[in-house]
């Protein structure tokens, strides 16, 4: 079996790469800028940060090597999650992306309802949010249908009233 590379080393290489990317970005941008004066150049600060990042990545790689020597191959990486756990997170992310997409794409008609002198406006946000909440709760294992119906409705109503009606936040 191949000896496992310590995760710190991988991380260190990753940061080293991003540090180099930032370094080359600031240097090339500086070279292309018309105002050549490091003192007030907008690329001075990125340059310093990229150098610091390179230093840190070396440090982290060093720590990784030390740790590997000490524990001789015994993986100290955070206990590996099961693929099931990863699947959950991915599913949740997909749900959120669908939600985001729906908010961005759908343009449902706006309906204004007057209750007790207040006028409530219902639109894409409200409908999509109710559906999203139901889907997410079902995914997380809520099985009581009363909860599945009333919590999303109540939450959405509260959010809508609090933000759209009272605080004048422009909801999508």
């Amino acid at each position: 079996m191949k000896r496992k590379i310590h995760s710190l080393i991988v991380e260190g290489i990753l940061f080293c790469g991003s540090g180099l990317a930032l370094l080359s970005y600031s240097l090339t941008s500086y070279a292309n800028a018309f105002n050549k004066n490091w003192g007030q150049s907008p690329y001075l600060f990125p340059l310093i940060v990229s150098l610091a990042m390179l230093g840190l990545s070396v440090w982290i790689i060093g720590e990784g090597i030390l740790a590997m020597k000490k524990e001789s191959g015994e993986a100290v990486a955070p206990q590996k999650g099961s693929s099931k756990q990863t699947l959950w997170v991915v599913t949740a992310l997909v749900l959120c992306l669908v939600y985001y997409g729906a908010l961005a794409v759908l343009k449902l008609p706006r309906i204004t309802v007057g209750i007790l002198g207040f006028s409530f406006l219902f639109s894409t946000f409200e409908i999509v949010t109710v559906l999203f909440l139901v889907a997410m709760m079902a995914f997380l294992g809520v099985r009581k249908w009363t909860v599945l119906v009333f919590v999303p409705l109540g939450t959405t109503l509260f959010l809508s009233i609090a933000f759209r009606t009272l605080l004048h936040v422009l909801l999508p």
Binding site: F118, G154, F158, I161, A162, T165, L166
Partner: peptide, 14 residues
């Protein structure tokens, strides 16, 4: 919390 929030919000709007 919701109830309280609503009450407050109402006061505010008034």
């Amino acid at each position: 919390m919701i109830a309280l929030g609503m009450a407050v919000s109402m006061c505010l709007s008034m």
